[in-house]
């Protein structure tokens, strides 16, 4: 099967999966204990007429199936209505938070790959030598360090003591020098463990590939070691890294609750926690939907990259 057909089929499979994601997202409100009207009125006693009026307003008197279709229609147009708790437009709230989260998460993701991939190659090639020992020790420290602790230490040392960075985010647009500079510490905090994970994965994957007969054969053909490693070994060793990097990409959108909290960063993680605490169902629903879609799309991306890297993958 050609790559084009494979991608086409993979895209087609995504459609029913996305429908499933929306159905699950929709139904979770109905699966929660209690009645939606109670939640809307804040668990106060109201008259039967008021309750009926609310049911009619939110279409709660219609069959669940119709409610789902109505909700789906709105969701497709990104129309999630107003939050009954804050009275703000849900789409606008998420629209403000999502870019902030993507900026921080994306920067951390790039940092993880920019450090993890070269470090993985170097440690794999120099296995057993000092560079490998240093790299593995650093990775162990990176994975073992809790990010709330790392964040607090960085904040204390570089912002409070040295004053190199702001303690609170600047009141500036996302794409501005001040904001980019502020993001340095949260990016390091968030990216360290991921970099260590990518390094360990790539190292072990490359170690395994280095023993493969095609590597000996490539050396027997007189290819320079650089070509053997970077062209032949790396491409085969990359598959597990793609899986993990793809999943990490998907989880970017749900934000990093702890790191956002430490650096007062207005991202999705804090919004999600606050909405859960306030039982702000429309916001929760919208966030869950966004996360679900991101995971589906990230998996699609991973599968396509798999197929590009390895021509044998055409399932």
């Amino acid at each position: 099967m050609s790559l084009g057909r494979y991608v086409g089929r993979r895209l087609a499979i995504t459609v029913p999966v996305l429908v499933g994601v929306t159905a699950l997202t929709f139904s979770f409100v109905h699966l929660l204990p209690g009645d939606a009207v109670d939640a809307i009125v804040g668990f106060r006693d109201v008259s039967a007429e008021t309750e009926a009026a609310i049911r009619a307003e939110y279409h709660l008197d219609q069959p669940v199936w119709d409610q789902y279709l109505l909700w789906l229609r709105d969701a497709i147009t990104l129309e999630f209505g107003e939050s009954p708790v804050t009275g703000r437009d849900v789409s606008a709230t998420i629209g403000r938070r999502l870019p902030a989260t993507l900026a921080l998460g994306g920067a951390a993701w790039l940092l993880a790959l920019a450090i993890g991939i070269p470090a993985g190659i170097v440690t794999a090639v120099s296995a057993g030598k000092p560079a490998d020992e240093v790299g593995r020790l650093a990775a162990l420290a990176g994975i073992a360090t809790p990010n709330f602790w790392l964040g607090l230490i960085l904040l204390f040392v570089f912002s409070v003591r040295l004053g190199w960075f702001r303690v609170l985010p600047p009141d500036a647009p996302l794409v501005s020098l001040a904001t980019v500079k502020f993001l340095v510490l949260p990016t390091i905090t968030l990216g360290t463990a991921a970099a260590a994970l990518v390094m360990r994965l790539l190292r072990s994957s490359m170690r395994r590939e280095l023993d493969a007969p095609y590597v000996t054969a490539a050396r027997a053909r007189g290819l320079p070691e650089r070509t053997v490693i970077l062209k032949h070994v790396l491409r085969n060793a990359f598959l597990p890294v793609v899986t993990v990097a793809g999943l990490q990409l998907a989880f970017l959108v749900d934000g990093a609750v702890v790191v956002e909290g430490i650096f007062s960063w207005p991202g999705m993680g804090r919004l999600l926690v606050r909405s859960i605490l306030r039982r702000d169902y429309p916001v929760i629903q919208a966030i869950v939907l966004v996360i679900g879609i991101a995971i589906v799309l990230a998996n699609l991306l991973v599968d396509i990259i798999y197929a590009i890297l390895d021509p044998r993958i055409r399932y």
Partner: peptide, 21 residues
């Protein structure tokens, strides 16, 4: 410079000698 140019090897198990990708 000699490997693959002046002296070349044919390995057993041809299926594993080529890089699959």
């Amino acid at each position: 410079a000699i490997r693959g140019d002046e002296i070349a090897m044919v390995f057993q198990d041809a299926g594993a000698v080529f890089n699959p990708v």
